[in-house]
Design a protein around this nucleic acid. Structure first.
Length: 419
DNA sequence: TCTGGGGTCCTAGGACCC
DNA sequence: TCTGGGGTCCTAGGACCC
């Protein structure tokens, strides 16, 4: 048996922990740059606020209905995510039985526990008590089924946050009322295609012909079908701790036209991404950067990005900034209005196994000591405490986030004061 | 005009997830 | 005026090899 634990309206719930007066009130959280809506309280959903819509489209509605709006505060959410996962880890015997799947979701392997339902009810109550974050739990023989069970736990209050999809009758009934688009792994494209062939529910997908599915839809959908039949196929769904690509991209808070601003932004993104790179003890062998003027020019835009294979895989911020700055020269056009930029590292290898280059003259030990010290200080005193001059000081291109809550749990000056 | 068989590796693009 | 960001896997096709 698997259980999937999913935090309810996670970002909104994090905001409410330190603002208890917002319980039972409509609350939403916006994406970076205050662009779209990415988390909604139950009350906000009831008012018809849709997931993913641009904020400016509903700003008036938010005002009229007294909806509380937050910019996103990923440092806070990341910290709460860690707390929730810690709480859950108290409920497994072996570390491997808890698989952190995303910032607000985890799978538990329940094979060794009798009475999983009651076990999960206790876990749910304790997690909320310890962290302040309410969760829902779905239990079933496979991960795909447990995700569907989780939806039931969320949707029907009567189950009080935990739904155990154990019997065949129960499972068939739930699958028959689950649209195929709500099955884990079936997105917009596949569900429209499946529906064309008359497969509109999870039950119909489960009972579809294997050979036909394999031919028409490939092995991924076939595995999903096995999962729906109760045969586990997705074992290691955990986010791999060592990533193959590392990116940092942001929309600007305002239009950017100058080379100086772009250089600052690119240097800043390189620095963020390089911190992630060093955290997983990797080095990057390839660097891609792009600058983008605005959306949906699909054709005129062939040259928005450029890739460079690095002579030696590296994790050194100044070295990466150096390359990125050179590459930026190739992309920049005087007179263009830029909205967004980003960097991506690829060809990632373990730091210890970097292939040296005979012609390489860089003193790598010196840089590596410097990076080590910077990472240490920034970890202790907050990101950005020590940074490179190339990142700039004004950073007036930085994304908007005017409605961001304090970093209650990670910054001394933001500690909540009582009395 | 004729024209085998079996592989590997890499990349771009499509699909998905949260 | 204003529409996020960061990942994964699979597949098809091209280049190349013997």
């Amino acid at each position: 048996m698997y259980a999937v634990v999913d935090c309810n309206n996670f970002f909104v719930s994090c905001e409410r922990v330190f603002r208890p007066e917002l319980r039972n009130k409509p609350v939403i959280v916006l994406s970076n740059n205050d662009g779209c809506i990415i988390s909604r309280s139950t009350e906000a959903k009831a008012l018809g606020i849709k997931m993913g819509v641009p904020y400016f489209e509903v700003r008036e509605q938010c005002k009229q209905n007294d909806i509380h709006v937050f910019s996103s505060n990923y440092i806070l959410y990341g910290d709460f995510s860690g707390r929730v996962m810690n709480a859950l880890s108290e409920f497994v015997d072996r570390e491997d039985d808890l698989e952190v799947y995303s910032i607000d979701e985890a799978f538990l392997d329940l094979e060794t526990y009798r009475d999983p339902e009651n076990y999960c009810r206790t876990m749910r109550a304790k997690t909320e008590q310890w962290t302040g974050i309410p969760v829902s739990i779905g239990i079933a023989p496979t991960k795909t089924l447990s995700k569907i069970a989780n939806d039931v736990a969320k949707k029907y209050k009567g189950y009080q946050g935990v739904f155990f999809m154990d019997t065949k009758e129960r499972t068939d009934k739930v699958l028959a009322s689950t649209p195929v688009k709500d099955v884990w792994g079936i997105g917009y494209r596949l569900s429209s295609k499946l529906t064309e062939y008359g497969i509109g529910t999870a039950l119909q997908l489960r009972d579809a012909d294997e050979g036909w599915i394999r031919k028409k839809f490939g092995v991924t959908v076939l595995r999903t079908i096995h999962e729906l039949r109760g045969i586990p196929c997705f074992f290691d769904g955990a986010v791999p701790s060592v990533r193959k690509h590392i990116a940092s991209t942001r929309s600007f808070g305002r239009n950017v036209t100058s080379m100086e601003d772009l250089r600052e932004a690119i240097a800043t993104y390189v620095s963020w991404a390089a911190t992630k790179l060093r955290k997983q003890k990797s080095a990057a062998g390839g660097l891609y950067i792009f600058i983008r003027t605005s959306k949906d020019h699909t054709r005129l835009h062939q040259h928005e990005g450029v890739f460079r294979e690095l002579p030696v895989a590296t994790d050194s911020t100044p070295e990466l900034i150096h390359h990125a700055t050179e590459m930026l020269q190739e992309l920049f056009h005087e007179g263009s209005i830029y909205k967004k930029a980003g960097v991506m590292f690829s060809h990632i290898v373990p730091r210890g196994s970097v292939q040296l280059n005979v012609f390489d003259k860089t003193d790598r030990t010196k840089f590596s000591k410097l990076m080590h010290v910077m990472d240490g200080v920034n970890l202790r005193d907050g990101q950005g405490m020590l940074k490179f001059a190339a990142m700039g000081t004004t950073q007036n291109w930085m994304m908007r986030s005017g409605m961001r809550s304090p970093q209650y749990t990670t910054k001394w000056n933001d500690l909540l004061v009582l009395g």
